[in-house]
Write a protein that binds this DNA or RNA. Structure first.
Lengths: 159, 159
DNA sequence: AAAGATTGAAAGATCAATCTTG
DNA sequence: CAAGATTGATCTTTCAATCTTT
């Protein structure tokens, strides 16, 4: 009973520390991007994802699942990115229900301007203090937890 | 040069995995709370923080720094919690600039209803697959990163 | 009916003033 | 002027329809 209780406390403290650092990290990166280039992290991730796709184009649905975002959220975001001239929509030729999102030249420039200095400086700042083995630990733990969370989503989907 | 490049990739992948799992985890916990009790995680954290304070009361400023939230965000949140009857404001007797936030009886009940089952089930789900040593690793890494991020905030504050 | 996508309204967060007290 | 706190405008996310195509 005692050890059961201790174990639970361990979990709770680990969870608290994890959620705290996750927030701090996201905020920090978001700020550095925002300040340096005027691009919020959420938009950056969309542009980055499109830039790696063939023809710099993806279907809304595929883009949403790559980014682990809801269709609704992505749709609103793409609307705003279209207003900035960074993304264009086109209807899918093979399936009239679908919509294709394409990264424009201007969008690519914006991404390339923002990308190198800021993300790298963030990374260097953040991981400068961790030993290579610790970086690996962090990655292994994250991937293990992510796999578990994905299996939970399959049981109880969020949409 | 080659190893420099490899190291950077390691960092980037670790960061990606970490940010992904952090989002999944936060969403999952938020949903379980929301579905089970109608309380969003952000509100839960405020109520929980107040419930541990002496007299169930804290100054807005102290509450904000405990939660690592901006004063503005907290002020808006407390307004909404007051509307629900879960928190009350009072002006600080010793410093007329200050405002005290107090958890009400109804707020305490709401917290206690939401708290036990949901958070514990979330914790058990999430950590069920990690060995105790891994939980400790996760905690140690999180705390180490958090300490580093705090020192960054001191150099370049966010407010 | 299910899948892909969008929309409008409501809730939450951020940003730049603003106001009061120290 | 600085610290504590609030406000209003704006932006983002979420939620619950809605619409079209399969």
């Amino acid at each position: 009973m005692e050890s059961r209780r201790l174990q639970h406390d361990d979990h709770e403290q680990a969870l608290e520390a994890f959620l705290l650092v996750a927030n701090l990290l996201r905020e920090r990166i978001d700020r550095e991007l925002q300040r340096g280039s005027g691009i919020p992290l959420a938009y950056f991730q969309i542009l980055d994802c499109l830039s790696r796709a063939p023809e710099r184009t993806l279907r809304m649905s595929d883009l949403a699942s790559h980014l682990h975002a809801s269709r609704s959220r992505l749709s609103h975001s793409i609307t705003r990115l279209e207003e900035r001239g960074w993304v264009e929509r086109a209807s899918c030729p093979t399936d009239k229900r679908g919509t294709l999102a394409t990264l424009t030249e201007r969008g690519l420039s914006a991404l390339e301007t923002a990308s190198p200095s800021l993300v790298q400086s963030a990374l260097q700042h953040l991981f400068a203090q961790l030993a290579p083995a610790e970086v690996q630990q962090l990655r292994a733990l994250s991937e293990s937890l992510a796999a578990h969370l994905f299996s939970l989503e399959d049981e109880h989907p969020l949409d």
